[in-house]
Design a protein around this nucleic acid. Structure first.
Lengths: 189, 189
DNA sequence: TGTGAGTACTCATTTTCATGACTATCATGG
DNA sequence: CCATGATAGTCATGAAAATGAGTACTCACA
């Protein structure tokens, strides 16, 4: 039951509709969790039923009516409780790592292509996170912002996302280099 | 269906019993996937039924009879296919990040405790990965090993695991520092 | 004039994961 | 002699996540 709390945490930044939430949760802009639209709508329904969030309908002229949700006091209490509870250390679960684990037994060229694709993807996310961070801190320096800014949670999680993607990119590049060198070396024999 | 391939990749290193597999998959020695024993046994059964692995019973005098599994040619082909297929970019999904996302609204002391715990855990894994890497490369340097060693897949995934945990540790420490400074600053007002 | 993209959401189903409980045997330490 | 822990698994159940399909309305573009 952690999606529940991820949604609560996301709603802390202000009222959001289900649709806006899906935008934040889908491609990876949400650097602290990921979920499908269907899960989010279902979770919103449940959260509202349990009184942890309150929704209000907003009728729009040109677009379909939407429902905006905000966290209630009960929701805040729930988050507080969640924060105090034990967090199981998260594990990696990545197709690409499985492929590299089998590196000695599969086609190197294919593997290099996959790694290269991932490196490109990581680079794109690095750019995105960079933009997000700049936007959040405005014209202040990072130090300044983290000391005195008034909503550093999203900034901090974004920093982790950034570092993660940098790690991904660097590792992909390193691994590609290693595999290439071995290809050349073996070709000589 | 990725656990399937994770098991295949793990079995490439040599015949393993279900029990040995669980040992490799549990605490985090498996730096590329994680699964419960029950899942592994179930997956082994399925893999054998599909002819991707072959099992043989080994009767032991002093211990229960075990079954050792090895990857078949069909299994190798399956892995090859998997390697060529699209890999969905993995997303983070971490309780701790959810908690930090809500940092501005929850008790800082509790949060710092959680971060500190995670940093300790990360440090322990860093040590573990360091040992594993040294063991795998023997007395060779990393460069040497990666160039000429004959089973670099596990080494490469272990490198990613190491970098990930270093990232975790550094981020936890940084975040703790930021939260502490804000606590002191706010205390003054 | 219709095609595709964006907004806003719902329903149903399947697959995957996680949990707890259970059966055995053997070795070790106290 | 009894408890604990390691070896080597199995069964059943439930929660969580992923997938596929569908509704309905609007706007821009060609």
């Amino acid at each position: 039951m952690a999606l529940r709390h991820a949604v609560l945490a996301a709603l802390l930044d202000g009222e959001l509709s289900g649709y806006q939430l899906t935008k934040a949760f889908d491609i990876g802009v949400a650097n602290f969790w990921h979920a499908q639209p269907q899960q989010l709508y279902a979770e919103l329904t449940r959260l509202e039923k349990d009184g942890l969030i309150a929704g209000r309908s907003v009728v729009q002229e040109t677009r379909p009516t939407k429902r905006l949700f905000q966290v209630t006091d009960a929701g805040l209490a729930e988050l507080e409780e969640f924060t105090a509870a034990f967090a199981k250390p998260s594990f990696i679960r990545d197709d690409l790592l499985v492929k590299v684990q089998a590196a000695d037994h599969v086609d190197k060229k294919t593997l290099i292509a996959q790694l290269s694709e991932r490196a490109t993807f990581a680079e794109a996310k690095i750019q995105l996170f960079g933009k997000l961070l700049r936007k959040m801190r405005g014209d202040r320096t990072e130090e300044e912002f983290l000391r005195h800014g008034h909503r550093i949670g999203p900034y901090l999680t974004c920093l982790r996302g950034l570092a993660l993607e940098q790690g991904n990119r660097d590792w992909c590049e390193r691994t590609i280099t290693v595999l290439r060198e071995r290809r050349h070396h073996h070709a000589r024999h």
